[in-house]
Write a protein that binds this DNA or RNA. Sequence first.
RNA 1: GGCGCUAUCGUCUAGGGGUCCAGGACAGGUGGUUCUCAGCCAUCAGACCGGGGUUCGAAUCCCCGUAGCGCUACCA
Length: 476
Amino acid sequence: MSVRVRFAPSPTGWLHVGGARTAYFNWLYARQHRGQLVLRIEDTDVERSSDDAERGVLEDLAWLGLDHDEGPGSAGPHGPYRQSERLPLYRRRADELLERGLVYPCFCTDADLERRRQAALATGRPPHYDGRCRALTVAERERRLGAREPYSLRFAVAGLEWVLEDLVRGRVRFPAGVVGDFVVLRSSGLPTYNFACVVDDAGMEISHVIRAEEHLANTPRQLMLYAAFDWTPPRFAHVPLILNRDRTKMSKRSGEAAVAVGDYRRAGVVPEALLSYLALLGFHPGDDREILTRAELLEAFSLERVGRSGSVFDPDKLRWVNAHYLHHASGADLLRWGAGFLPAAARGLAAADQIRLLEAVRGNLATLADLPGELAPMLGEETAPDEEARAVLGAPRSREICAALADNLERLADWSAEAVKSALLAEGKRLGIKGRELFQPVRAALTGRVHGPELPVVAGTLGRERCIARLRAAAR
RNA sequence: GGCGCUAUCGUCUAGGGGUCCAGGACAGGUGGUUCUCAGCCAUCAGACCGGGGUUCGAAUCCCCGUAGCGCUACCA
């Protein structure tokens, strides 16, 4: 049987890191098994869905490099892929169940339902639908239908136990009688989540449903629908939730960490790092590796090694993973990732020069957002020396070394980091100064700071004229 | 309230009866390396939710508690 999985976001906001992880697991599973990944937009909640949000989700997925085989706009064989465009399908399926007496019209209003629900809760009864419209006589039903009373369609739940063989949680039993008659088609004609989900997963020939644990308790409803249609259900894999520090489901409300993929993109996290971090939140490769590339994950990933308990999102560890990627990246990758974070002074430079700059500072980066700050001294922007730098420049022999080095650099045949370094060391030797006492004044003179990338590299990048001018200024 | 899921260092986790006085990683402490920060290296500290069983032996299996979370919607 060929593997077909799907990622089914509802476009009610930006892509959430939890959604990104689910999408990644699905992507990995599909690619591992040479199957297909379907992207389906679940926009049946018209109140909360928007085109903007859908665009945002699509952009974030593209940024992460999670491509799909079928989805909105790709005209696949099982489309359309937007639930709002599949309404007639749901209607037809609902009618089918209506004819067979498996669903029934319910005329209860929202207000009635809510009141009865509260009353049930207050007296300690299960807050399920009480089934009163299920008991309507044929005559009564016909009369109210004829009177054009608005109605929803409810599934007539049978008293059966349901057993789910979940690929990550094992066997899960749902005893009979805990699920009330649920709505399948709203009075607006729009399907509910559980109904649309089943009609679509079946219609799109989905073989494995890999989704978040919050859907676990919905699964018996879906199983009932599969049985009602006499369809074979897909295999299910419910992956644990990503949590806030307080261990509630991660959301923008209660958490202090950003939840949207876009927030991390803007904060200078690279997609590979986010993906690696997210995958290892809940999945364990079975060895001590802490960072796995996409290719390595394609090798190592399996649903069996996905944990069963929720995981707290740790921005510090993500930062560490991101720094690792930045420190080990090729110049080309750095440029691809960092182009958008380059300060104005570096934008106009040739790609080769930009790469040189990025490589010089990459060791100091935790995120791409550090780029402007790290690059500033390399780009020759005039910055007044800070307090520490002034203290260093005020030291006894600082003027002496600056003046001597300026003279030496004027005579230098070729200009490179290596040449500057030998010149500096030569002057230091001549004056009997080395180490800290030698490097720090020069660094302070050139950048106005006492911290930064390797000094020769800084000098090399800054260029001869600027270096000499600054050394002379400091020597005065 | 009901049902379900989960429970190892602050956090992510390894562990699936003896090899565990519980291993790795992030964060934290200390030291080393480097002109400096970062990095890197070394090193320290830090956990099996509680109680009962089963067993010669339990972090690992079972039961009962407890806690957290999820679901219980004409949200997804």
